[in-house]
Design a binder for these strands. Structure first.
Lengths: 249, 249
DNA sequence: CTTAACTGCTTACGTTGTACACTAGGTGTA
DNA sequence: TACACCTAGTGTACAACGTAAGCAGTTAAG
């Protein structure tokens, strides 16, 4: 699962040259990546094994290694390919821009929930991810913010979307693995509800009794509006207090 | 990796009775959980294998199965044990309460970054996690919010903290795996910087040149302040538009 | 003492990523 | 044409993983 990271950089940023000699390749890097994404979409990231990807292509596991250095790099390529499906944030007012960016990322996570499960290790950012990021920064570039404030503002939105996304991704994965919907599953946890007593969990039981868990507000919409409101307070304020980490004071 | 979930509920909520007969156990559930947490803290969640945990206890892998039904349940127990290390949110003004909650969770994630990597599947919430959640809801219970609004407000904070936490956790894991600090590592990616050209990534290069990436604002502090500002706007507004998912209209 | 309950260990199996050595197929040069 | 050389894909093998099954030793209850 290790990987030579400079090799990854080349892999992502410099498309491989076609070889002149030897037999024509039935497979190709993009076909492998495409198949891998399809597997992950269908059955989750845990189902993404080299053998499985090869199988869907009608080949053996080892054949993939002619086109992809290893699984880790395959994941890098998958991530950037998915970023490539999103639209870069267009120019315009900052709030509309950040909202657009957030919705694009959110849509991406909904289409490929496994994306959130493999940002885990230090992954090389690919060109698609980078241009999208760049366009998001551009959305808040005309506000007279300091460079590090631009980064901080976009990062705040990203963190929120990542947070919601992860919860959603977990839910999707669980529903696929168990074959039981979220609601049905919790309904079936009577053994758990027995421990919901007002003395141990007063607020929980209160919310439960008032139906607060039955029909939740849309977590993404609600949270995004709040986050953007909070950023508006910051952006529109006269003096902006900088919060720097200690190392930078 | 599967697990009988009602068994998990009992495991988490109903502490096991001591057996009367048989040899005294050298191991115990809590010792196993404790050792597992230590392994994960030290070397990350990937290093958490049954063999490794057993080794640190001076036993063999299979001995653990006398005290813990399987790895999945061990993870459940670890998660709740770590929640047990946090302080429940005290009563007081809503903003101070939410901030306290956020800081507790943040501190927890910093101490145990692996927590964020294994919320993956549908995990049974344990008593500690639940009481902390309950106390967080209580922080916004006196504001005249609807039950689902209480949930949404706390959830928004959680999502943000989860988002920042994940980024942090990824960084920690990467630093441990590679033995290279974040900064040094990016410095070493010259192959990557070559592709940072103003025509492809105008904002990136601009921010880079103005030093915006060299000394980032504290992501947690900055974002938390914005999120709380945004929630304040919502909480203090006269009429609060409810954002319900379509299914609930 | 006998017996039942319990602890911990040994062995073994299937699944994973992938190293290594191989065959079959194609292009260039002599 | 003949040969050298590269390349695509295969087959086998290995170490590490979670854990099922069964066994040997230990202790308290009857």
């Amino acid at each position: 699962m290790k990987s030579d990271r400079d090799r990854s950089v080349r892999l992502l940023w410099e498309p491989p040259a076609e070889p002149t000699r030897g037999p024509k390749a039935a497979l190709s890097q993009s076909r492998v990546v495409e198949a891998a994404i399809k597997v992950a979409d269908a059955d989750g990231i845990d189902a993404l094994t080299m053998r499985r990807v090869a199988e869907t292509l009608g080949n053996t596991a080892m054949s993939l290694y002619r086109h992809v250095p290893g699984k880790s790099e395959l994941l890098d390529l998958m991530v950037d390919a998915v970023w490539g499906e999103t639209e870069p944030t267009p120019k315009g007012p900052w709030r509309a821009g950040l909202e657009f960016f957030a919705r694009q990322v959110w849509a991406m996570y909904r289409a490929h929930p496994w994306m959130l499960q493999l940002t885990a290790s230090r992954r090389i950012p690919g060109p698609h991810a980078m241009t999208r990021q760049d366009a998001a920064y551009a959305a808040v570039s005309e506000l007279g913010l300091a460079a590090e404030e631009i980064v901080a503002v976009v990062t705040t939105v990203s963190h929120f979307v990542d947070g919601v996304g992860r919860t959603m991704a977990d839910r999707v994965q669980a529903e696929r693995e168990t074959g039981v919907s979220e609601e049905d599953w919790w309904d079936g946890r009577e053994a758990l509800w027995e421990h919901f007593t007002p003395d141990r969990l007063p607020m929980m039981t209160h919310i439960w009794n008032s139906g607060g868990f039955e029909c939740l507000l849309d977590e993404f919409e609600f949270g995004l509006a709040r986050v953007l409101d909070g950023l508006a307070v910051f952006i529109e304020s006269e003096e902006r207090p900088l919060v720097r980490p200690q190392a930078c004071l």
